[in-house]
């Protein structure tokens, strides 16, 4: 229950944070909301010698409008994401997925940046980031770089962010007027996804003009369901076309087996949940 000892710094700027990380070397860890890291430290699954707390860096919090994109600071809490008017209007899918995370206390502390860098395959914000074509802005000793969500998630619990780097913001192209839905299948409330589906759809005169679909927990990293998208675009937004398109949902996935589900069952869930998610996003009763 008690983590092993570490040093603690709480810088007030990103530059100071990067300096602290560089000086401490590989044994330093960033502390964001702590909702994944603190349990890990308590169980002593990790024992960093230094924690660099980002909570005092105010520039990393908040959401701003930047023309065609909205920019979300990495330290914006789940609670603030859910309640942010810009996100609700232009990236509703992110707010809907965030609403399903854990419980209110977890959502008061946990952050968007922390959830993305933690990269748990069952985490609920990875698939929305892929579906929304988000871009991650990362700063390190070598300067600043931008990585698209499609390249950001490298493996289980592994992202493009290096140990001496900080994810500072998430840039999300506006999807104003799109319908969105996050369909999560879990055993009990306050649990992680067994499988979940993130869908955003733009309809035009009863047809599906554009569609974005990504899957949670169907592989080590979030799966972009391009087969489903191709089967949807240009088709009438009806229950039949959506059901047919959802048949492609398990293509290109490599679901794992665990106490909750075996791969076959996960593939079944992917198809059923995709149908529900897309139907809801398109404004049809699932």
């Amino acid at each position: 229950m008690i983590p092993s000892a570490f040093d603690y710094v709480a810088p007030t700027t990103v530059d100071e944070a990067i300096q602290a990380l560089s000086q401490a070397g590989d044994d330093a860890k960033i502390l964001a909301g702590g909702q994944s890291l603190v349990p890990v430290l308590r169980l002593r699954l990790a024992a960093p010698t230094m924690l660099v707390d980002l909570n005092k860096i105010s520039e990393l919090r908040g959401v701003r409008d930047d023309g065609n994109v909205i920019v979300v600071g990495a330290m914006t809490t789940h609670h603030d994401v859910i309640n942010d008017p810009l996100i609700r209007e232009h990236a509703a899918l992110l707010a809907l997925a965030t609403q399903t995370i854990g419980d209110p206390q977890i959502r008061h502390r946990g952050t968007l940046g922390g959830a993305l860098v933690h990269a748990d395959p069952a985490g609920d914000l990875l698939a929305p980031a892929v579906a929304l074509d988000a871009e991650m802005v990362i700063v390190g000793p070598g300067g600043r770089r931008t990585v698209p969500a499609s390249e950001f998630f490298v493996d289980l619990f592994t992202t493009a962010v290096q140990p001496d780097e900080v994810l500072i913001e998430i840039r999300i192209p506006k999807k104003t007027g799109w319908g969105a839905h996050y369909e999560k299948f879990q055993r009990v409330a306050q649990a992680w996804s067994i499988v979940a589906v993130a869908a955003a759809v733009r309809t035009e005169g009863g047809s599906i003009a554009e569609a974005r679909v990504a899957l949670t927990n169907m592989a080590a990293t979030p799966v972009h369901a391009t087969g489903v998208e191709q089967a949807l675009v240009g088709q009438p937004a009806t229950a039949e076309t959506i059901r047919a398109a959802a048949e492609h949902a398990a293509e290109g996935t490599s679901p794992m087996s665990d106490g909750n589900a075996d791969p076959d069952y996960r593939e079944h869930l992917a198809r059923v949940l995709t149908q529900r998610a897309v139907a809801s996003a398109a404004g049809l009763a699932a």
Binding site: A10, L31, G34, Q35, V38, R42, D53, Q105
Partner: peptide, 27 residues
């Protein structure tokens, strides 16, 4: 609990509920 699930440790931190087993006192 040991997993931040149970909520028995809930307190208010600057007016918002948090699980005090997943925050460090230094913070």
């Amino acid at each position: 609990c040991d997993t931040s699930n149970c909520g028995a440790c809930t307190v208010h931190l600057d007016g918002r509920s948090v699980k005090s087993c997943s925050v460090f006192a230094v913070q």
